[in-house]
Every structure is written in C-alpha cells, then in structure tokens.
C-alpha cells in the first residue's frame, strides 16, 4: 500500500514530496469497469486513461514478465489527483475549523486527506484504505518538523525544503504511522 505526501506553499507551489510504500496489505478494490476495458498499453497515456476510467487495481503484465503497476499508480496521475483535491480542500478549509481535514476527496482507490498549518501551508496525503488515527499522528509529526524547518532564517514559506534531515525524519514518521 503506497502513500503520497505533498507539501504545498500558501500559493500552492510544491515544496516537498514523498512516496512511501507501506508494509501493510492493500485492501482489495474491485472495479467492475476495469475488467471491461480494452488494454491501452500501446498509448502513452495508457496510465491516465486507465486511472480515469477506474481501472485502478488492474496490474498489467508486460511481456518480460515484470509486473507493471496499474494506471492509478502512475506518477502524473498521482499528481493530477492531488491537484484536483486542492479545489475541494480550498472549499472545506473555509468551513471546517480544524487543521486536519480527513478524507476530503476520493478518486478511484485514492483518498485525499489534508492538513493546513496556521501559515496556510498544506500537507496533502494520498492514501488507500482508512487509517484516520495513523494519518493524524503522521501529520502532527510532519507539522512539528515543518515548524522547525521554518525557524531557519534562510527558509521562507515559499522555498523548497531540501533538508536531508527533514526528509529522513518524515520517512521515519511515515514508517511508524502509515
């Protein structure tokens, strides 16, 4: 089961992103649409199309025998889903008085959860399956790390986070909670 974390500045530019493979098993999602679809493997946009059509967990076997992950796992699809989630987040954040906005958006197998810091930086997490408490704990740890990063005088709310320590701490936290 994989998780994708994006940290976005107040003006929605990406500051940091992380892909985490969790050891926990994937809940089996069956999409009736997926089985009826032709194989798009020749098209460059195969991933996008399969993802959009809901063929999420359809893993395709290439001729070499290697397993290609389904369209929903493609990098650009992930980014698209995260970006689409932003619209919903923007809407919800003016209604909900909490920082942790759980499961604001759903797209095929992906659920989008978000965390808004007081300075309006957004943490967006794409995840499969339900894990509210773990995600909350994960966000709280990322927030603490983010505050510490911000205290650096060379860091602003709009500079990309390049700290190696930040990265390893976030990874450790992801291993612990996700």
């Amino acid at each position: 089961m994989s998780h994708h974390l994006f940290v976005l500045s107040p003006s929605d530019t990406p500051l940091y992103s992380l892909t985490h493979q969790s050891a926990k098993p994937v809940p089996s999602v069956t999409s009736p649409l997926a089985s009826n679809l032709p194989t798009w493997s020749t098209s460059a946009f195969a991933g996008t199309l399969t993802a959009l059509s809901g063929a999420s967990s359809a893993t395709q076997h290439t001729s070499g025998g290697a397993v290609r992950v389904g369209g929903g796992q493609d990098r650009h699809v992930i980014q698209m889903i995260a970006n689409a989630g932003l619209d919903v987040i923007e809407e919800v954040m003016h209604r909900e008085p909490t920082m942790y906005l759980k499961s604001v958006d759903k797209f095929n197998e992906w659920t989008v959860s978000a965390f808004i810091t007081p300075g309006n930086t957004k943490f967006v997490l794409l995840h499969e399956g339900k894990n509210d408490e773990g995600i909350r704990a994960f966000f709280m740890e990322v927030w603490e790390l983010y505050v510490k990063t911000m205290l650096n005088p060379f860091q602003t709310a709009h500079t990309v986070i390049r700290s190696g320590v930040f990265d390893s701490r976030v990874r450790a936290s992801a291993r612990k909670h996700l």
Partner: peptide, 22 residues
C-alpha cells in the same frame, strides 16, 4: 511568519484535534 507557526504549534501541537481560526 515564523512566530505564527511556532506560537500555534505550542498552543495546539499537543491537542488531539488542532483548531484553526476562521
């Protein structure tokens, strides 16, 4: 920008459901 983040973290960081002002 820093004072805000730090101040709110100190107030809400240990809470179960940190709140934002609307």
């Amino acid at each position: 920008t820093r004072a805000l983040e730090l101040m709110v973290w100190r107030a809400e960081g240990s809470s179960k459901a940190p709140k934002r002002e609307l």
